[in-house]
Design a protein around this nucleic acid. Structure first.
Lengths: 205, 205
DNA sequence: GTCTATAATTTGATAGAC
DNA sequence: GTCTATCAAATTATAGAC
């Protein structure tokens, strides 16, 4: 499966607004994106934006975060389901993330971390949405690792580390315009997976 | 001050502007911080800001990034110099980062990653400043690890991974308002350091 | 070096016709 | 649901007196 957040056939106005906002947030962040830009990119008037999101820019931001979080969680679960083991699952995830970065000329693959840093101390609704996103990813990865036979305590640590690594490599790789940080982190994650204790199985990998 | 191009007031005001801007960027990011806020926090008029930074907000941002990058690099090098080995150096770094996060009620410890994500695709001067910051940290950590006897190739990977991990844990820990992600990442970094090859067993460990 | 005043735009948001 | 018109406030930046 392609490493993309876009879903096909989006015609409804509300969906166009969400998709356009997501794209703009990826490039300019939350504070750097104006409603007029969203209106133009979504081909919807400001009036339409307020019709679907009476709470304005903040309410729209919450929906964008929740939607994007779900798409990324499903992307990970899809890659995991198609992989023979955690080692190759994580390898695939980082490999396709790197390809998307390069193909998009190092546009941010995901707006959630950016928004989190911008508003974590000033907008509680958006901060909580980002918290839901991170927690849902951690829970999904943790469950997958446990199901794959990894010691539950190690699985929790590895899941947290995976999410922090994704966030960290996205900033650094994007800023340096190089996938090298992504690849270095992938090697380390995969090694950590390999050496994690597996109570019900002896061989790693 | 006949023989100096700097007057006392000049240095003081310029310094106040840089420090105040750094603090505001940590809380609200680059686009979320206005010159009027900076003016108020620095107790300097808008006219003074433009006197010291004719390039306006962008030029001020570049100086803030470069200054902060140097402070953080020196902080790491100071902790490294005071530690008996890389294992405890990294442990100390993450431990004190966690204390700073808690003590500040999870304000962002560093504005650079936030700015990088906000402007990496729209402001080349700021993106390059962030790139300089990341690269200087990576180079500093790499040199330290090599000096400590770690295999040069591993040292490069570990240095990159350290910087990405710092960035990733700062976002996630701050958003979740918990130092747990920071601690989980610290455990893995320390383990990676422990298992890294040491070809010349001179001063390692 | 510092200050006030202000220019020129843009912002998020609202009202009401259709 | 979509549209135009518009609001008050805030934005970066400049000019010029002191």
């Amino acid at each position: 499966m392609a490493f993309s957040i876009y879903t096909p056939t989006m015609a409804a106005t509300r969906d166009r607004i969400i998709v356009a906002t997501n794209e703009l947030f990826r490039r300019h962040g939350y504070n750097g994106t104006s409603l007029s830009q969203i209106s133009e990119a979504a081909e919807a008037t400001i009036g339409s934006i307020y019709h679907f999101f009476p709470g304005g820019k903040e309410a729209l931001g919450v929906v964008v975060i929740d939607t994007t979080a779900g798409i990324y969680r499903e992307l990970f679960e899809s890659i995991a389901a198609d992989s023979p083991d955690p080692h190759s699952a994580f390898q695939s995830f980082f490999a396709s993330a790197g390809e998307v970065l390069k193909a998009s000329n190092f546009i941010d693959p995901c707006p959630i971390g950016t928004i989190a840093r911008e508003v974590a101390n000033t907008n509680e609704a958006l901060r909580q949405a980002a918290e839901r996103a991170f927690n849902s990813w951690i829970a999904s990865v943790e469950l997958y690792l446990i199901t794959a036979g990894i010691d539950p305590h190690s699985a929790g640590d590895l899941a947290v580390m995976f999410v922090t690594t994704v966030e960290g490599t996205f900033v650094v790789s994007r800023t340096l315009r190089s996938t090298a940080p992504l690849e270095a982190a992938a090697r380390h994650i995969v090694t950590a997976i390999d050496v994690a204790p597996r109570p019900t199985q002896t061989t790693a990998r």
